[in-house]
Design a binder for these strands. Structure first.
Lengths: 248, 248
DNA sequence: AAGTGGTCTAGACCACGTC
DNA sequence: ACGTGGTCTAGACCACTTA
């Protein structure tokens, strides 16, 4: 048994409605994030852990598997389980979809330009609606430290009509969608580049020949129902869209 | 029992080294891909399936969970399991990292411009090597239907020095890495836009004021070892980088 | 009330890598 | 030979949805 083996103290609450495997996974993740288990350290093996915690081995396996999915742990058959190098963690990166801009250390803010019902056949088609259907159209300007950064246009099906300007300013679009029962989504996103239109140049305060990043996205609920169509335009100077991807 | 319930014929080989849950998952996925189970169709419930196939319920659960991860199935507690709308499938999209350009219907080809050992402190730093370390540097030009599309520059640690020009032309970089024992990777990728340099304009045959998409990427093995640093430049007219993302 | 997925147990045997 | 993770079983009980 190596001296550096990470044995994480865990407190389980069997009365809690939170599943045991999830309680365990969260506490192990916290130990890794907190540095109690360093990258490269061997992790306690699952048989020992199940005995120590009074859990069955499949339950412990499930918790560990959860962390492997997030990139926090690596398992090597015949060798053991190890803490991953920090930069392989995919845990945070899932959020990259809606905070995909690198505004690190800058204070972000959003201004709602318009909130209206309008027709836009292209978005309606993406949302599986009649081309003439009225959509909820949102147009927002995104700032970092007071400088304009992006124009965000979103079109939503009529079922989201109850979303107000004030709610958007305060809480963001995807927080609102959650209130409407939208849990997880899968989005198809397309990124390109072009020169800005006159209107875009004005809103983004672009003077010279700076190109913009154009992002088009349609998001779907797991069942396949379209949730949102977005067309965003970003300034390209000093900003980039960061992604964490995996390939198997 | 609804009439449209999808009951997929499955043939399992218990003598095969391929795990049962994986055999089952593959055959169910094939049935969905082949249209035997249509989007929205209710799927056979797991208890019935385990009895029909002579498998334990956890094994069947594991196969189904595998397909849920790929976005092929959705499960609703108390209701059942359903085939997902086609566009929510994440199954294929994993490959988006290395074929992330939409060259649909166009025949791609690659020309190796240079293959050399050189120093490039920025890439060396990304690869956790000494700034003065010699790296394997690859410079390739990517075509679609004979038109130049992208300049691809990659830097790799010395352990990949055995990769030759000929292998690259024929089989692509990531196929080579696989031969060197690199299975899955996690990549941090940054996408921006700018105007091309004179050299880039020439190589990509850009005449006017067309911006380019600049992509920077560093890929890591699960254990955290850096595998590759890439800096790619794409023409932005008519081309876009397509991604499938998820948010939970 | 009935049927579905969600969780959990307590074992078993196998495959792989290291000593 | 030993220890590791990988697979699999045959049950059990709970939570949620629909009728």
């Amino acid at each position: 048994m190596p001296a550096g083996e990470a044995v994480v103290p865990v407190a389980l609450d069997r009365a809690s409605p939170i599943p045991l495997y999830f309680q365990l996974a969260e506490q192990l993740a916290a130990a890794i994030a907190g540095g109690q288990a360093q990258p490269g350290d061997p992790f306690e093996n699952e048989v020992a852990m199940s005995e120590r915690l009074g859990l069955s081995r499949p339950t412990v396996r499930r918790a560990i598997h959860h962390l492997v999915d997030q990139g926090l742990l690596v398992r090597r058959q015949g060798r053991g389980t190890f803490v991953t190098s920090r930069r392989v963690h995919r845990r945070v990166s899932k959020g990259s979809l809606y905070e995909d801009l690198s505004i690190q250390g800058r204070s972000p803010s959003t201004k709602v330009l318009t909130r209206a019902n309008e027709r836009y056949p292209k978005a309606a088609a993406a949302l599986d609606l009649d081309p003439d259907a009225e959509l909820l159209a949102l147009r927002r300007l995104r700032f970092a430290d007071g400088e304009p950064l992006a124009i965000m246009q979103n079109w939503l099906p009529p079922r989201f009509n109850s979303i107000t300007r004030e709610q958007l300013e305060q809480r963001g679009l995807y927080s609102m969608l959650r209130d409407h029962g939208v849990g997880s989504v899968v989005a198809h996103q397309s990124i390109s580049a072009r020169l800005p239109t006159a209107e875009e140049s004005e809103l983004l305060e672009i003077s010279g020949r700076l190109p913009v990043i154009a992002l088009s996205r349609t998001a779907f609920e797991p069942g396949g129902a379209p949730v949102e169509h977005a067309e965003h335009v970003y300034r390209s100077d000093g900003y980039a869209i960061d992604l964490v991807l995996e390939e198997n």
